[in-house]
Design a protein around this nucleic acid. Sequence first.
RNA 1: GCCGGCGUAGCUCAAAGGAAGAGCAGCUGAUUCGUAAUCAGCAGGUUGUAGGUUCAAUUCCUAUCGCCGGCUCCA
Length: 578
Amino acid sequence: MKGYKKQEEKQLEVLRHSTSHILAQAVKRIFPQAKLGVGPAIKDGFYYDFDIDGELLAKNLSRIKREMEKIIQEDIPFQKEELSKGEAKRLFEERQESYKLELLKDIEDDQVSVYRGGEFVDLCRGPHVESSGKVKHFALLSTAGAYWRGKEENPMLTRIYGTSFFTKEALDSYLKWMEEAKKRDHRRLGKELEIFGIYPDLGSGLAVYHPKGAIIREVIENFEKKEHMKRGYELVRTPHISRADLWKISGHLDFYKENMYVFSVNGEDYVLKPMNCPAHIVIYKSKQRSYRDLPLRLFELGTVYRREESGVLHGLLRLRGFTQDDAHIFCMPSQVVDEVRGVLQFSLFMMNTFKLGYKINLSTRPEKSIGSDILWEMSTAALREALIRENLDFDVAAGEGAFYGPKIDIQMEDALSRLWQGPTIQVDFNLPERFDLTYIASGGEKERVVMIHRVVLGTIDRFLGVLIEHLEGKFPLWLAPLQIKLLPITDKELSYAKGVYEKLIKEDIRAELDSRGEMLSYKIREAQLQKVPYMLVIGKKEKETDTVTIRRLNGENIKGVSLRELIRMLKEEISIRN
RNA sequence: GCCGGCGUAGCUCAAAGGAAGAGCAGCUGAUUCGUAAUCAGCAGGUUGUAGGUUCAAUUCCUAUCGCCGGCUCCA
């Protein structure tokens, strides 16, 4: 079954790659001056990069699409040709495809392949579908600027994104899915549901939480604090600014400066913290530590600020100021495996609590890194062992570790199928060195402590953004900012409804009474749009029988519920966090 | 930061070189109506900001700020 699926994915990739060639052919027909970049198949489609005025391409997308349809009509076969590198070089020189020549330079084989389709030739490993006529159901989606080979110092090309499927149904359902994803956009829902806002007057990349959002955060943060304390973490608090000297020792002023807000007061330099570790280290260093104190787990909901490039900001998912659920575990080398296992269990507990999927990566030593081989090997082995002992599937991301140590990344998948950094666990032998962090071992000698950096939700802000998209704004009862809305049908039930409301409030249920003189259906519509998990319909019948009618978001009704039963139900649902 | 697009009322959007418009939200009043929009009235804008072209600019030009799509998937 798995093999079959892979096979189908491969075929789709071939189709999409072929579609990208047809796109390139169409663009060359219309704009012969355009130079070809690259045009691979990607996760949900394909793209092709062109060196041409971006405006020109963007304005002619429908014309390009029509030309593509023509090429498909012509049913031009894709013909593979094997050439020597020299021959290929001559071919692309003749065609003045300078980018292709650059690619050619980097190919080590002497033999390369090109695909020809009528007048169009492209350097390509293939494979392709037999002919352009096999491509039927495609769409051009957007244009974008993209640096040649993704590097800022290179010229910017214009990229056209598109997708292609074997059937019309598949294409339609993909386009529908894109629409659906747009509806879940946390920025849109955040505004509609009055959860958060990002306002130019305040600064870009800086979020404010409106009352509803502040409640959600409060619930998540309290939950997190309790879960940390259960697991032997100690809560700390550290200031937002600190002396620059601290960041000099940590190395951040050398390695991370362009992302930091640094300022000077009376000739003394200060840093707005981009991370919490140095401050936690100061706490560790405040007294002599014994092996008996270890592991020491310091936890803080630490708000940090990083100067991100303006173009990468994206709602709550990418901010300049955000709060991490950050902890640093100071331990002996022999404790690393167990500590990492503990963090893994904790992280997955969190993912399960919020019903999110995840993928685990073990990131190993990058090219640019510091520290001895032995330390790298030991810590990578420790992470690996922890993963294996926890019986977890993981991929190895070679060379993706931090410059000071290997890490485990757990990625959460959101509604748009984007993977976002969630929990991370990093072993660090650099900072203990730089700050000379030691403990007194059982034999009385000073030993170097090991530090583990870890976050379990990552950043609360981003996590909330992902959660909004994941849930489509329909928060489960325990998280819902407004848990229940009381809807009296007429004024005659108002005082009865008020009594119910007051009892709910007394039980710490987040309730609101809609006492306006509107029709029931209007009140229901509004509560639906606000995605309030429970509504109480209170009319003549309810008043007479001293009950309420519950209406759930999905339209389901439960009639004749006593107040006591209602409170029991709500409390039960809140406590199991369902 | 870079490429492209977009900035009109709180929100969603229309118009357009010659008096800026609608729906929803808001406010006032009426309605008391049992499961996703009751009716009427009122108010709401230096068209992001600053320059320029023009008899005339919200529309055209320049700059600036902000937002959106992308810039890792390397034949």
